[in-house]
Every structure is written in structure tokens, then in C-alpha cells.
Amino acid sequence: MQAWLSENTLLLGLAALDGLSYAATVFMVAVGLNLVFGVLRILNVAHGSLFAIGGYVAASLGLFITSRGLPAWLSLPALLLAAVLTGALLGPVIERLLLRRVEKQEPVLQLLVTFALFMILEDLQKLLWGVQPVVSDAPVRLLGTVDVPFGADVIPFTAYQLFVVPGVALLTLLGLVWFLRRTLAGRMIVAVTEDREAARAMGIDAARVTLLTFSAGAALAALGGALASPTASLVPGVGAQTIVLSFAVVATAGLGRVEGAAVTALLIGLGRAFAVYFEPELEVVIPYIIMVAVLLIRPQGLFGVPETRRI
């Protein structure tokens, strides 16, 4: 064990750093999915497409900045801009035109509406950005690498993945916790999540809360995509991959707290990164194995509250 550890220190370190940055993006997507599910009671299959679109928009903005010879630092705020654009444009459109119309339908129909949307958005990406990988690594090159000490060795790691990605995720986490507990709008979201009818009875405009939540969730997914875009090339199918992973995070965490999504994203992100370095065959499977194992022991998920039915 000792020998193995010392032999693999570098790999372990690299896996941990990779896992951290990966977990950060997964968290961004999963936390939005969780919020949206809480308020709308719809598992949004198209949430992964919003991640992909956020990434594509960010990459396009990045490439535009580079090709016009604009200052490279602009590529950082461009990430945020991409997320805001995607959330503010697509979020309200999807919520108003589609989800609201099936509000009263059976859950399976609501789910399928988002599946239809997923299919449409997948092809839309291909039409707009083609099937060739799209990369814009301006933010990564801008910030360069940092030597991270690990035991006796150092690991050169991109500053972008080390600081920007986890930093934004952390700020999002803190911001969301503050927003949901301390602001009126946030408390309204929590109230609607816990009991929609009671919230309505208290005079909360549930329709507005729904619109706000869905758009915010869309923006979070898009921000996740934008953050991931400089380090991973965007190809068709990235949305499909992302959404199943976030499903796993949400189900493992259980429905409820924002912190739950963070801890679970970290667990699954690190699990996957270690698999990439040590058992690459397991890379895709690890999140699901974690999920199945967790649900075997805690059927309501790690942070979920068991529902008691009133009879």
C-alpha cells in the first residue's frame, strides 16, 4: 500500500486536481437541475443541452475575441456573458412556451416534453456549430499554469482549472445558499419547493417563481458549460453525456439542499477522476455505481428527507 502510494503520488495528485475541477462543473449543472426539479417537479432532460449550448456560445465568443484581436482577458467575462445570454434567452422561452402549457399534465408527459426539447436542441447545436469539435482555450492560455506541490514533486496544472472553475462553483454555492435563505425571492423559491399550494395560499406568485427558477437553472447549466468549454472540446453528444451524469448526482444527493448537490458532485467528480487515472474502463460506470450503492443504503439519497405519506 505504502509503496503503491509513493509510486503513484503524482497520479493521485493529478486525479484529485482533475476531479476537483470536474466536480465543479458537474455541480453547476446538478444544482440547477435540482432547483428546477424542486419547483417545477419536472426532471429536465434538456438541462444537459443548456450546458452544451452555454459551452458553444462561450466558445464562439472566445473565438470572436481572439479573431478580432481584442484583449484576451475579455474571454473570462465572456464565459459569464454566455451563461447569462443562454439563461435569459432560452430559459423564459422554454418555460413560458412549453413547460407552462403542460403544467397540469401527467408527469410522464412533462418529462417527455423536455425529452423532445432535448432532441430539438441536439440537432440545433449540430446545425449552428457543426459536428467538428469546437475549442476556444483562450482563458486557459491567458492564465497559464501553476506548479502545485505534491509531496516531493510538483504538478503543473492550469491556473484556470485550479482557481477559476472551482472558484466560480464555490461562489455559486455560497451565493445560492445566501440567496435561498436570506432573500425574499429565495425564500419564495424554497416555499414553492416545499409546498406549492401552501405557498400560493400565502400569496406567492408561483408562476413568477417558476419562471425565475427555471431561467436561473438554465443559466447555471450554461455557466457550467461555459466554464468547461476552454478545457474540453465541444462535440455533439456532450449534452447527452452531461445530463445523465447530473441525473446521477441529483438522485444520489436526494432532492433538497444545495449543499447536498455540492458534496455529491465532489464525490462523483473525484470518483470519476480517480477512475480515469487508475481504472479507465470504469470511468463512465463509477458515478452510477456510487449512485446505486448510496440508494441501496439510503433510498431517499444522501441528503434527501424521506417522504411520509399522510393517510
Binding site: 426539479f37 426532471l43 408527469p107 445523465v244 441525473f247 446521477a248 441529483v250 438522485a251 432532492l255 479507465p280 474502463e281 470504469l282 470511468e283 463512465v284 460506470v285 452510477y288 455505481i289 449512485m291 446505486v292 440508494l295 441501496l296 433510498p299 439519497g301
Partner: peptide
């Protein structure tokens, strides 16, 4: 195993197990 769960947990567990099989086939 899965009949102990309902709704999204039922749906997601089925999804997870099929994804495990998928990656076994792929890898």
C-alpha cells in the same frame, strides 16, 4: 432492487443500470 423505489428514483436507477451495461459493452 428497483421495485423498492418510485418516481424519479425508479427512473434514474433504471437509467443508471442501463448506463453501466452500456459502458461495459463499450469498454
Amino acid at each position: 432492487f428497483v421495485v423498492r423505489y418510485r418516481e424519479i428514483f425508479f427512473g434514474m436507477l433504471n437509467l443508471a443500470l442501463s448506463m453501466v451495461f452500456y459502458s461495459v459493452l463499450e469498454k
